[in-house]
Design a protein around this nucleic acid. Structure first.
Length: 805
DNA sequence: TTCAGCCCTGTTTTT
DNA sequence: CAGGGCTGAA
């Protein structure tokens, strides 16, 4: 073990200890990955192959063998959870001060970086971060102000467009726009950028992009970090987007740019192409291949030994994923036995499906399984409701992940808006959010006048208040006066005191006291005080948090970074090069007030959503949210065409493959037991929908499955279930009860001969395949997949469909 | 200005 | 079915 961190200085290269206790218990591949030479490498880590262990042991190994000092490590993950996990494991392996290490999420690290170099980045030091909600409301506000036709340019779509541009590293000027519609979008993008800049706020994408540009445009800064980071480790590399990969390339330098002199770290990319499930938000699996090519990667290690699941589960996963094209190729294996078969259940309704899930999991609990070891997964959040109801009725404790998280709740957002205004009065988004909440006689008309005035003056709303005349103006003035007083009163106070005084002064508590449903909200607001308190404890803001001056003008050639107040326990630069201009390192960037730091924390980590974390509860979450987790028993529900795979993903082949990877992720969460289920009918958007069972079920090997219900026809084209509708079908919901083994009721015909699975012809769209039919009589609709025109819903009463078969 | 009620629309996954 | 936005009345 390392007793003195100083030993970690580079230069003294102790002989790598092959018998290091760190390596104990690792298999050959894992060991090879941990002890790789300091060169670029790609680890293909299958699900459950001990990826996190390898990653953390690698860091510990590098530190222990003196190949790098803590300050020379950059480790990037996607989720806060993963970053925390890495830190915890690391500190349990080595006694070490992790403060100088850069371990965090892309967004977290970019934030840290931008705070330190905020002047170079053109941002106020206390810039605030817009979450998705804030971003949308900022865009809506902008659209109103600039008379954007919200019909033609829906704000949500604009948000998607802007985020997409940023993920590709494109500023408005870089976006190709051929037609007028596209040009208009780019124009709005530009306006949005201006607005954010004016208000001193950044969105998630901006954190990344701004940080990328800063590195790109400032040679001294880039050179500094290149020399600093000798080892760059990236988790979940398959989830990186274009911009993130470009950022990594800047911070590491391309091979041609790397040298003893110029620095440049060794990149260790860890990923699994089969678990790439974030293409929808810009993730590019292709980055893996690009990395291998651009960095001439010589070391590729596959981790295929799975330590998690029984072989029946793995066989199912392997078989499923083999249906995807163009994989890097990887097969999981295990030494564990076959284990239980994968159980498959077909329910008549979503309601019955939930009932079955609850019955089964109660049985598991009776057999001694801990509830927290049981997960119920679904494709989309809306599906949780039925299951929740069932669990609730059965009195089974459960916990839902996702949905509204703590910092996203309305009352919390209101409170945060007040706090943000204390920190930055120019934050118009926050201003508008609370200027009339609780109501204080400032209505839409007043605000319109204020916004006009602000636009005319080119100032923030806050600064334009004095120009509004009359009673309305007086109300506004009273509002900002209240804020100003609060700001003065709380100066120098602890975070807790600031929040408590804000809750009083804002009138939020008072307001919710008067509401009938307000008690919960008040409790949440009180919880906010607790959240702040524990944040202060964790970050050590409590006492003598010395604010170090950050000299942003950049180069201070005569001073070494160490003389600028860097943590002496964490030497940043091993032997600073004599000619190199010293750049203030982002480690000195902790000059934020506790309040500003807390607000950042709130934006970057939306927080957990349920207070009852300690209880032994069944876990409910989307498949996406389950990534990286594992459970003894896993239920994957709603395995239906249109739901999983989701209908929006069916239009292109890439979408389907991503859905399949999603299913692969879901399957590989299970250690011992895996349950799959689908329902014939499901209540969605208040309508009963009839779904075929998911094609993914048919892609699993029969011999690992155990059908709990009699099997009927296969997917779509093979003997499709006669699917038609009867108006009172919904009324029959639940009456099937346990009657699932009975033959399907054959409801009266709609009069339309259209059935799922059929090949049909449409005058305009040509030939297509019917995916589903729903509704009855004149309302009957069919979902048809047209090869040329995509998936469409057609009203059977109107559309002329002829059966081709 | 506020509030209640109506209509309309959207509706995958999220750092 | 939900939530947001819009309208009209108090």
């Amino acid at each position: 073990m390392l007793s003195n961190p100083e030993r970690a200085r580079v230069g003294a290269h102790p002989a790598p200890a092959a018998d290091s206790p760190l390596l104990a218990g690792l298999n050959a591949e894992q060991r090879a990955a941990v002890t790789l030479p300091p060169e670029h490498a790609l680890i293909l880590a299958g699900a459950g192959s001990g990826k996190t262990r390898v990653l953390t042991t690698r860091i510990a190994w590098l530190l222990q063998t003196g190949q790098v000092s803590p300050g020379g490590v950059l480790a990037v993950t996607f989720t806060n959870k993963a970053a925390k996990e890495m830190l915890t494991r690391l500190t349990s392996m080595l006694p070490l001060n992790v403060r100088g290490m850069w371990i965090g999420t892309f967004h977290g690290l970019c934030n840290r970086f931008l705070r330190a170099h905020h002047q170079l980045a053109g941002l106020p030091q206390a810039f605030q971060i817009l979450d998705t909600q804030d971003q949308l409301s900022a865009i809506k506000r902008l659209c109103k102000q600039h008379q954007v036709d919200e019909e033609r340019y829906p704000p949500r779509q604009l948000q998607w467009f802007i985020a997409g541009c940023k993920e590709d590293g494109l500023r408005p000027a870089d976006v190709p726009a051929s037609d007028s519609q596209a040009r208009r979008k780019v124009e709005i993008y530009q306006l949005y950028e201006d607005q954010c800049q004016r208000e001193g706020v950044v969105d998630f994408g901006e954190l990344m992009l701004r940080s990328y540009e800063l590195l790109r445009d400032h040679d001294a800064v880039r050179a500094h970090y290149r020399r600093r980071f000798r080892h760059i480790l990236i988790d979940e590399f398959q989830d990186t987007n274009r911009l993130q990969y470009a950022w990594i390339k800047l911070i590491a330098g391309l091979p041609a740019e790397q040298s003893e002199q110029a620095g440049g770290g060794a990149i260790l990319a860890v990923g699994d192409d089969d678990q790439s499930i974030y293409a929808f938000r810009g993730a590019r699996v292709g980055n893996m291949a690009d990395f291998v090519r651009e960095y001439h990667v010589q070391h590729q290690i596959k981790l295929e030994q799975n330590y998690r699941s029984h072989s029946n589960i793995l066989d199912a996963a392997n078989a499923l994923i083999s249906h995807n094209q163009g994989r890097l190729g990887k097969n999981l294996r295990t030494d564990a036995g076959a284990g239980e078969p994968v159980r498959v259940y077909e329910a008549p309704t979503d309601f019955a499906e939930a009932e079955w899930v609850v019955d089964e999991l109660k049985q598991l609990v009776r057999e001694g399984m801990a509830r927290r070891e049981i997960a119920v997964l679904y494709r989309s959040n809306a599906q949780s409701r039925v299951i929740e109801t069932q669990l609730f009725n059965a009195g089974v404790p459960y916990r839902v992940y996702g949905g509204l998280r703590f910092f996203e709740r309305a009352e919390i957002k209101h409170a945060l808006a007040y706090l943000r205004l204390l920190e930055n009065p120019r934050d118009d988004t926050s201003f508008l959010r609370v200027v009339n909440f609780p109501p204080r006689g400032i209505g839409a008309r007043t605000l319109e006048a204020l916004q006009d005035a602000a636009r005319g003056l080119g100032t923030s709303l806050h600064d334009a208040v004095s120009t509004v005349p009359g009673k309305a103006g007086a109300n506004l003035a009273a509002f900002i006066a209240r804020l100003d007083v609060l700001r003065e009163q709380t100066a120098g106070h602890t975070l807790r005191e600031i929040i408590e005084q804000m809750l009083e002064a804002s009138g939020l508590i008072e307001h919710y006291r008067g509401e009938k449903e307000g008690q919960d909200r008040i409790e949440n607001l009180q919880e906010l005080v607790n959240a702040a308190e524990s944040f202060v404890m964790q970050e050590g803001f409590g006492r003598d948090a010395v604010a170090l001056p950050v000299d942003e003008q950049g180069a201070v050639p005569s001073q070494s970074p160490a003389s600028q107040g860097l943590d002496p326990d964490a030497p940043m630069l091993d032997e600073p090069l004599p000619s190199a201009p010293a750049v203030v390192d982002a480690d000195t960037g902790e000059t934020l007030s506790p309040l500003a730091a807390f607000l950042t924390h709130a934006a970057l980590e939306a927080g957990d959503n349920q207070a009852q974390a300690g209880q032994d509860a069944v876990q409910l979450m989307t498949v996406h949210a389950s990534k990286g987790l594992e459970f003894d028993a896993v239920f994957i529900t709603g395995l239906e065409e249109g739901l999983f795979p989701h209908e929006n993903a069916l239009s292109d082949a890439g979408g389907l493959e991503e859905e399949r990877r999603l299913m692969y992720v879901a399957i590989t969460r299970a250690r011992q037991r895996l349950y799959l289920s689908h329902a014939q009918t499901r209540l969605l958007h208040g309508q009963t929908r009839y779904n075929l069972r998911s094609r993914f079920l048919d892609e699993l090997p029969e011999d690992v499955l155990k059908w709990l219900t009699p099997q009927r026809g296969g997917f779509a084209s093979i003997a499709p279930q006669p699917i038609a509708a009867r108006a009172d079908w919904a009324g029959a919901r639940g009456s099937f009860g346990s009657n699932f083994s009975a033959p399907q009721p054959s409801p009266a015909s709609t009069g339309h001969a259209i059935r799922a699975g059929q090949q049909v012809f449409h005058v305009k769209f040509g030939e297509g395949r019917v995916l589903a039919v729903e509704g009855a009589g004149d309302d009957a609709r069919a979902q048809v997949d047209f090869p040329r025109h995509g998936v469409k819903w057609l009203a059977l009463a109107i559309a002329k469909l002829t059966v081709v078969e």
